[in-house]
Amino acid sequence: MGSPFDINGGACVAMVGKDCVAIACDLRLGMQALTISNNFPKIFNYAPSTYLGLTGLATDVNTVSDLFRYKVNMYRLREERHISPSDPGQPGQLIVPFICGFDSIGCIDFAKDFIVSGTASDQLFGTCEGLWEPDLGPEDLFETISQALLSAVDRDALSGWGAQVYIIEKDKVTQRLLKGRQD
């Protein structure tokens, strides 16, 4: 049997823009080469403008997202405020675009540009490094992250089957569903 990281497949990417961030994932859930579902989103919402993308073994994606929801709920009840993406100790902090990534044992990657994960991570590194540029507005950032994700998952047999994109701005979040190749 293969590595737990590439049994179910899936890809996720986040990007920083000008006064906005974007996070996107594919929708496939598989068992090795067999596709089980084309509606398995890997991005979870924990507070206004706080999103978490999880890739890897699907059972662990579910476990971690649920466990994290529990912890975030407990945090909100105790602190009487929402959790924020970066520093947990500062209420009313300056709102700035922020993304970061983690490996499976908790090493943090504070990136200024983009974060990729999943079975299409090599492909995503290539497309993001080629397409991303600094200070993209919300619409341009949406186009960039969508093209980067769709082109990357089309070169990965274990990812694809549509995508979900969130554009997070100061006062609004836009969610879009992308069709993508169905093979």
């Binding site: 090599d122 492909q123 590194f125 290539g126 497309t127 490094e129 080629g130 397409l131 082109s151 990357a152 089309d154 070169r155």
Partner: peptide
């Protein structure tokens, strides 16, 4: 694997 999807 990095370059090919960019070319596509």
């Amino acid at each position: 694997s990095l370059i090919m999807p960019f070319l596509d």
